[in-house]
């Protein structure tokens, strides 16, 4: 383990033509954490991951992984980083055995024991063509290639989006077992929030090319509350807390807030909110009668 953050971005941005795919992204992902990168399609998740592994070059700011630049220190850094791209691309005509051989030839730090143990554990025949395997099995092969590098940081782009519920669970279980064994840092992007609370301890919410919220999931869940009360102007609440979402009926006001203190007006009823509700609020979902404010928000925290 190093004392550096696993991934650190400062003012990071990427522009394609006139459109920013990621803008003003500053964040620090602690070593040993399992971080979910959440946001709708097109929010900038893939862009952020590709910048982190040096597959693309920032238009602004910088990103470092394990204290090194993925562009200038690629040779020493990349063997320490595992990356599984979206749709886990593999050579479909290769057998499982060919695929492992490719991994061995391409990676200086390849651990054949790890690779073979995983293939055996998964019950995959070495002679079978990769293209004939199920989606879940292909995802596991792609994960095996990344894990056999013995990476310190593992980046997974939408790893479970295309998988059925059983394959999702098995895939995430494999990742978690690897974390338990090695203490590696994992960042996985997802547009599906369910399941993330089980496997992740940190969260980054991306929307419209910007980070909306970054932090430990426990703290995020503990600090957000839903307030309901008689219809009021939320200005008094806003002086103390961050109002993420507000909605009103004729008589009632409902606010989703990030609490910055403990004094609540006794007019408000307090309710706990789950992670999914919080994420949706930051992504701009306004609730039944609401107006989302997330779209106009700058990065929080």
């Amino acid at each position: 383990m190093t004392e550096h953050a696993a991934v650190e971005a400062v003012g990071l941005g990427k522009r394609y033509g006139s459109k920013w795919a990621l803008r003003d992204c500053s964040l620090e992902i602690p070593s040993g954490s399992v971080t979910a990168l959440v946001g709708p399609n097109g929010a900038g998740k893939t862009t952020l991951l590709q910048l982190a592994v040096g597959l693309s070059r920032p238009s602004a700011g910088s990103v470092s992984v394990l204290g090194h630049s993925p562009l200038t220190d690629a040779r020493s850094l990349l063997p320490r980083v595992g990356f599984v791209a979206q749709e886990h691309p593999l050579y479909r005509g290769f057998t499982v055995s060919d695929t492992l051989k490719l991994g061995r030839k391409l990676n200086p730090s390849w651990d054949e024991g790890v690779a073979l143990a995983r293939i055996e554990h998964l019950g995959l025949p070495l002679g079978q063509k990769v293209g004939q395997l199920s989606g879940g099995q292909q995802a596991q092969i792609a994960l095996t290639l990344a894990l056999a590098k013995r990476p310190e940081v593992l980046l997974l782009d939408e790893p479970v989006a295309s998988l059925d519920p059983l394959a999702r669970r098995e895939f995430l279980q494999s990742v978690m077992e690897a974390v338990a064994e090695t203490g590696m840092t994992v960042i996985l992007s997802s547009h599906i929030v369910a399941d993330l609370e089980r496997v992740c301890d940190h969260l980054v919410i991306l929307s419209q090319a910007r980070t909306q919220l970054v932090g430990p999931i426990d703290e995020i869940v503990a600090s957000h509350r839903l307030l309901t009360g008689p219809r009021t102007d939320p200005a008094s609440v806003e002086r103390v807390h961050d109002v993420i979402r507000e909605s009103h009926t004729e008589r009632q006001t409902t606010l989703l807030v990030r609490a910055n203190g403990h004094v609540y007006d006794s007019n408000w009823q307090l309710h706990e909110v789950d992670l999914e509700e919080i994420v949706l609020a930051y992504l701009g979902y306004g609730g039944p009668n609401g107006t989302g404010r997330a779209s106009s928000r700058e990065a929080v925290a």
Binding site: L172, Q173, A180, R198
Partner: peptide, 9 residues
């Protein structure tokens, strides 16, 4: 972790 597929942390 193996039984529940949860984060070791």
């Amino acid at each position: 972790v193996s039984a529940l597929a949860i984060n070791p942390n």
